[in-house]
Design a protein around this nucleic acid. Structure first.
Lengths: 221, 221
DNA sequence: AGAAAAATTTTATGTGCCATAAAATCTGTG
DNA sequence: CACAGATTTTATGGCACATAAAATTTTTCT
């Protein structure tokens, strides 16, 4: 009995496999964009990609793993946004952060929405992981509050960590509403900005407080 | 050709039908309590109720309608809580409101949780209806803020309607987290209370502000 | 009581979805 | 260009919801 034969052509095959995989994923993404999340069935993907269902299983694994893959890219892009350094007073920093997120979602609203829905269903957005977008977002809002205190914008009567978490909550709630189709990106933005302003207002030093009050009035007029 | 025959025994039948219906619903509820939401299949209900699947369809309609029925009672009870009149300063009123909700959910946590999940999936909690728990909750938090302003607890720099909505948001977000199993009822309560206190703090008059600050410190210590 | 009428339940069946084993096909390399 | 191994497909199964039509039960009326 000889040694097991060494696999030949492994590299080429791996490259091709990856290409086929990407093609199927692209089809899956397009289906979500065109027909919505609930139409993303294996049969639909198979038809669109010109393969059979078992091929999809073979290349991408279980259906939940298709979601995983779809989400992966989204998480990466979101991660980039979340690693930007905040600048200016807390309101400006929060606004910049928010605007970047909205702008990102606008590039492909349906797909991002679907990815979030899928991520929630499959518990993809590991809330406990320090690497996850959850932790990163929270860290960002908290950092802005901490800096805001250092630079005299906030009193610190309310701990920056607490304030940051509350503001992060505004983001989460608005995103939920958006994901579930109750509001659009425009309202998403407004809703978060209002909540953020009020929360900052609760701990703002006098001068900054004026600015926030003006902002709040402007939004709610 | 004579007249169509008049249905006989209609009343008795209706009563019995209702009983059978209730029995099946009770079984469905028990399944949710015992085995969780995802185990609530027609086959499971049928087995537990000692009937066949088509019988369930006959008595309760489509599966989504089973949820509707399960939710109905919950919404009624929640509606009762939501129609209680708030008393005392805004913090006390908000606390009373919150405590009633938590106490209610504690009576059968699994079932309430399942009902909320189902309600969200099937869009049961008509967000637009003035009769819905959504509108009622929002109205309650807003009323507390309005009263708080009248009685000098709040400045009114932030419109009571806006503040009420933000506080309502705290409830929604915490409930989401609870529904999705990320936090328990205890944390639910704490989270809402903290958010509420901070939001009230943002517009609180001097004396009340002290009280809120103490509360916030107490929760976040 | 017992037959007729109507409601109710069940049997049988269909559809849609995800999933996998085993057979058939294709691919890259020596 | 043949072969080894990777890849795809055919065939099949399981599970859940749903419904038509047959069988059964219940109620009422004589």
């Amino acid at each position: 009995m000889s040694l097991a034969p060494i696999a030949r052509g492994a590299k080429t095959r791996a490259i091709n496999k990856s290409k086929r995989r990407d093609h199927i994923l692209a089809c899956a993404g397009q289906i979500v964009i065109d027909k919505g999340y609930e139409c993303l069935t294996l049969a639909e993907i198979a038809k669109s990609a010109g393969v059979t269902i078992p091929t999809i299983h073979n290349l991408l694994g279980k259906k939940s793993q298709i979601f995983d893959s779809l989400i992966e890219e989204m998480v990466t892009r979101l991660g980039i946004v979340l690693s930007h350094q905040p600048k200016g007073d807390p309101l400006l920093a929060m606004e910049a952060f928010l605007n970047e997120i909205i702008a990102l979602f606008q590039t492909n609203e349906a797909l991002y929405k679907a990815a979030f829905i899928a991520g929630e269903k499959t518990n993809q957005f590991d809330r406990t992981s320090q690497q996850g977008i959850f932790a990163k977002s929270l860290k960002l809002t908290t950092t802005i509050c901490t800096d805001g205190q250092k630079n005299g914008y906030l009193h610190g009567h309310i701990k920056p960590a607490v304030l940051g978490q509350q503001i992060f909550g505004c983001h989460r709630l608005a995103r939920q509403d958006w994901m579930q189709g109750h509001i659009g990106l425009q309202a998403y933005q407004t809703q978060v900005l209002l909540g953020t302003s009020i929360l900052l207002y609760s701990d703002a030093a006098s001068e900054f407080r004026q600015r926030l009050n003006k902002k709040i009035k402007e939004i709610t007029k």
